[in-house]
Design a binder for these strands. Structure first.
Lengths: 198, 198
DNA sequence: CCGAGAGCCGAACGGTCGTGCTTTTATGAT
DNA sequence: ATCATAAAAGCACGACCGTTCGGCTCTCGG
């Protein structure tokens, strides 16, 4: 990896951490330059616009998420165990040892992009979210064919429900500072599984 | 109502609409002045800082929400009917005829305040959210004493779960533009009720 | 109906933002 | 070791931000 690629990766790493707390819009080139020890213009040269920096952050987030959450969870046995592994890792990604300083990057960015005008950044992010939900639905579907879940259960509805549990977890934990947030998430997850079983 | 109070109310009304799309941080005094036909400084004189403007917007949002969602729903009979009325109105507030141009103001603001440093704005908003969740739990509790729901059901867990359903609804509808968002929310709500019944 | 005070405006401030340009410094293949 | 080139810095720009201030205009109670 050349010098340029190396610093670019380091900048994106720090940018992801920063964006998890202040969001993609709150991410500022000057502040990012300070934290990486670069000058504003020196950093700017790596991305030729702020939009490309934001796209880079989304890419970096998707890659990190796949590497620390999805891929390890996919090693668990098909069906319910794999779903549990995914949920556990997602909780750790939100608030635990895998978490960025501002919690889940996607939960934060979703709030500021939901009413943003159409553009490359919004579209790339929406695609990442769709991919994630599709993946959850797929994992759930494999649970149906394993006989862990009812055959008439709706995988996409399950993905929607699970997304709600995790969004509420982020809401209760990060915003309301509710110490029971994780317990509530686990309770809700168990209820979802119970309702899905044959 | 004096002239000053009148324009102040009109400004807050427009500010709430604007904040529902661009958020409390994205709400800018100059743009707000343009849309209300005031000058920047003329508008600024009504609030003596941007922070007080933001506090005013939160207050206005809480009042509007209470008036158009909560109070009408409380007219429904205690227990499950009241809970249904609350949910129905909340869906209309999110996306229907009661909705602000940017959807639910609270869902949007929650995303940008969850990692904000402590301060009056954050604290006032958190209090509003807590009040809302407490109200949901109270309505659910009345459903227990009416015999509509199991006596050992946890009202606060229900409020957490319902919050998840609505956050996921906002996520699916606003960000992903999923046409089935409302159906999914209703399905999830029915499942919550089913699980809570005796 | 008149005068005090509220309401509002125009201009300007210091600050920060994203973004170009030019110049200096570091890299790495020959 | 040399030298083309990549990487970073320095500096300046226009735009927009929240905020201040002095003066103009309208409102409304006595």
């Amino acid at each position: 990896m050349s010098k340029g690629e190396e610093t670019r990766a380091a900048v994106l790493d720090e940018a992801l951490r920063m964006a998890s707390t202040v969001g993609l819009r709150g991410l500022t080139i000057g502040a990012l330059a300070d934290r990486t020890g670069l000058s504003k213009s020196g950093l700017f040269a790596h991305f030729r616009s702020k939009e490309q920096l934001q796209l880079g952050v989304i890419e970096s987030a998707a890659e990190t998420f796949a590497q620390t959450v999805v891929r390890p969870a996919l090693k668990a046995p098909r069906g319910e165990p794999r779903l549990r592994a995914l949920f556990d890792r997602k909780l750790r990604w939100d608030d635990g040892d895998l978490a960025l300083p501002g919690g889940c990057f996607f939960a934060g960015a979703a709030g500021e992009l939901d009413d943003a005008p159409p553009g490359p950044v919004r579209e790339r992010f929406v695609q990442a979210e769709r991919d994630y939900l599709d993946m959850v639905a797929t994992v759930f579907r494999s649970g149906i064919s394993e006989g862990h879940f009812r055959a008439d259960a709706d995988p996409e509805q399950f993905a929607y429900d699970l997304q709600g549990v995790l969004l509420s977890h982020h809401h209760a934990g990060r915003l309301l500072a509710d110490p029971k947030a994780e317990d509530r998430a686990r309770t809700a997850f168990e209820a979802l599984l119970r309702a899905a079983r044959p």
